[in-house]
Write a protein that binds this DNA or RNA. Structure first.
Lengths: 201, 201
DNA sequence: CGCGGGTTTGATGATGCTCAAGCCCGGTGG
DNA sequence: CCACCGGGCTTGAGCATCATCAAACCCGCG
């Protein structure tokens, strides 16, 4: 169960984990299974745990006054799920997070997370790199949202996130890209016509 | 010159700086003055330095095929400027960064930055917290872009970033919010009418 | 005074949204 | 086996929002 997170850690840090480190991590990360559609976090609750995804897929979203869901974050195995804002500040979350597939998680609390940062150098390094990557990713997405049309945003998404594109249905991708499912449908049709390359299903 | 960054550091870290730390920082952060409109980074160049803003204001943007500027990041004193993607990966930047006011910076190179992270605990802590804050901020902005209308985005921006709103002209704010200056002008007019509260200038 | 940068306003058009209907397909139960 | 159902995708018609283009205005500054 914990093997994948060890592998993940060693893949993104230079210093390797000692047996003691692994023991510590086995004791702090609690495993949890979630069924498809099961809530991990609901709007108004404080995000007490952050989750490493061992297997499956999760979605993070808000619901607006019209009841429409807007997906701010999608994640699959070897990524993380949780609301960082609520997790860091202990304030009620404005997001919902649920499983989109049957999912296996490894949970950690805020205090355990902070302890781990101090006690395992590899973890600190991983977190720093992860934060860097996440910020760069968010910045790219922001740039796309303020400067590109729906069509170009989708093209970019498709080419740089093929896995997400495969794992999540179109209406979720659409929302993630800031358009409706109807618009994305038309956009894809246009794109297909233009390059006469049917999208691989 | 370096005093402000010491103050900044101590404001966001628990461990305090030793005299030796400060000496080290004085030697690694190089100060630089920039005139309004002077480039700090141009598209295609690698971002060799990250900059702490002691005084002034900077803007980071892309220029699309039609020659329109899209502002992805605005920053003022006590914030940072630089393209993290290029800085971290040594790849050519897709952004331009320039000074919007006469500005004083403290520059640091990537290797010096990584060294500092290892040698001063307060710096590591600051970076971690900064990354957390930046990510949360980016996430909020993403959420606003995919789920709110131009009017609501502006209202949110105005209330949570009054300083930016004061320091940057409207057409820059507009671009930052993902709309044209023309649209923002109309949106503000509507908002004024609605609340019969003239925006403080 | 005239210039440049920024903002406002109007007219027009494109892009993307809403609503509604129909289709496709996999799963369930008679 | 087939009928039905639900979720997801597509398509069309009409509409709202926002972009574009162009003109005018405002104001600080040389």
């Amino acid at each position: 169960m914990h093997e994948l997170i060890f592998k993940y850690l060693s893949s993104c840090s230079t210093s390797s984990l000692t047996e003691k480190d692994m023991e510590l991590m086995r004791n702090t990360f609690v495993s949890k299974k979630m069924r498809k559609r099961q809530y991990f976090l609901q709007e108004g609750d404080v995000c007490k745990h952050f989750a490493f995804i061992v297997k499956g897929a999760m979605r993070q979203y808000t619901v607006d006054d019209k009841g429409i869901e807007h997906f701010v974050q999608l994640s699959i195995e070897n990524y993380w799920a949780g609301d960082r804002e609520s997790f860091a500040t202990f304030t009620p979350s404005i997001y919902n997070i649920d499983a989109w597939e049957d999912t296996e998680l490894l949970l950690i609390t805020r205090t355990d997370f902070l302890n781990l940062l101090d006690s395992i150098p590899g973890v600190a390094e991983m977190v720093r790199k992860l934060d860097e990557k996440d910020f760069i990713f968010a910045q790219r997405r922001l740039k796309a949202l303020i400067s590109l049309t729906a069509e170009k945003r989708f093209a970019e998404f498709e080419s740089s996130n093929p896995e997400f594109n495969r794992r999540f249905p179109q209406h979720i991708i659409a929302s993630y890209l800031g358009v409706t499912n109807v618009t994305l449908s038309r956009v894809r049709k246009q794109a297909m016509k233009k390059y006469s390359l049917p999208v691989i299903s």
